[in-house]
Simulated scan of single mutants.
Amino acid sequence: MAAAIAAAEAAGPANGGSVRIDSWIWAVRLVKTRSQGATACRGGHVHVNGERVKPAYSVRIGDEVRLRHEGRERVVVVKRLIRKRVGAPVAAQCYIDNSPPPPPREATAPIGIRDRGTGRPTKRDRRELERLRGAGGAGGFGSPGGRPTPGGRPNPGGRPKER
């Protein structure tokens, strides 16, 4: 662990220097790629000390960084400046996390998930799933006026198949 911290210190700028914000949020693992960090800055999702910043903004020790990413807001205070990506335990020592707690997992559960091992859904189950997901139409066979083919698949033209 001490060697990793030393490597992170070596990856940082010279005494009293600064690091680009897009590079720093990538290095401390707040985003997966540096280009995602730059895109978040350009889109107005990154604020430093309450101001919207561009990707080339120089972040300094003590700055408060607010990042809105993947439906969650992260609020961190910069403790250490690094330029290179490091492991998660070392990255966590480079900032103080003041973020609100993430929402509980059961509150974000997807709708219409079937129990494992229940087999193939029946027609009634499929219609219920489509209704829950908002994909079902009034006709039930895809396009309005379309009749099912002999195999039960939708026939968008509404005419019987040529044989």
Rank of each mutant, 00 (worst) to 15 (best):
V76G: 07
R20N: 10
R127D: 08
S99P: 10
G50F: 05
S58G: 15
Y95E: 02
N49G: 13
R80F: 05
L30R: 05
R20A: 08
S18E: 11
G157E: 09
T39P: 00
P13Y: 03
P55H: 10
C94I: 02
G112M: 04
Q93C: 08
V59I: 11
S18K: 11
N15K: 14
R131Y: 06
G112E: 00
A38W: 08
R116H: 12
V86T: 14
G44C: 02
V77A: 10
G142R: 00
V53W: 00
G17Y: 01
F141V: 09
T39M: 01
A38F: 00
S18A: 13
P104V: 13
R159K: 15
A138N: 09
T122C: 03
P102C: 03
I96Y: 05
E128G: 10
A11W: 01
R147H: 02
P103A: 07
N49K: 02
R66L: 14
L132E: 11
L81C: 02
G12P: 08
P150R: 14
K84A: 11
G71T: 02
G157V: 00
A2F: 08
G16Y: 03
V75E: 04
E51G: 05
G142P: 01
Q36A: 13
H69G: 00
L81M: 08
P144K: 14
A91Q: 04
R126H: 04
V75Y: 01
G142F: 02
G146C: 08
V48P: 10
G37H: 05
P150T: 02
G140E: 11
F141K: 11
G137F: 03
E73D: 11
G136W: 07
A88F: 10
G44W: 07
S58H: 12
A11T: 08
V65T: 07
V46K: 03
R131W: 10
G140I: 10
D22C: 07
G117D: 09
F141E: 01
E106K: 09
S143E: 14
E106C: 06
K84M: 12
G50K: 09
G151D: 14
G12A: 04
P150N: 06
P144A: 15
G71W: 11
L67G: 06
C41V: 07
G87D: 15
A2W: 03
E106A: 13
D22T: 02
H69R: 06
V65I: 15
N98L: 15
I96T: 10
A4N: 11
T149E: 10
R159C: 05
P101E: 14
R80E: 00
R83C: 13
G137Y: 01
L129F: 09
R163C: 06
G145A: 01
A11S: 15
D22N: 09
R20H: 12
T149K: 02
P110E: 11
P144Q: 13
R80I: 01
A4V: 04
R83K: 15
T149W: 01
R114K: 10
R60M: 07
L129P: 04
P121D: 01
G136E: 12
L30S: 02
A2N: 00
G17W: 06
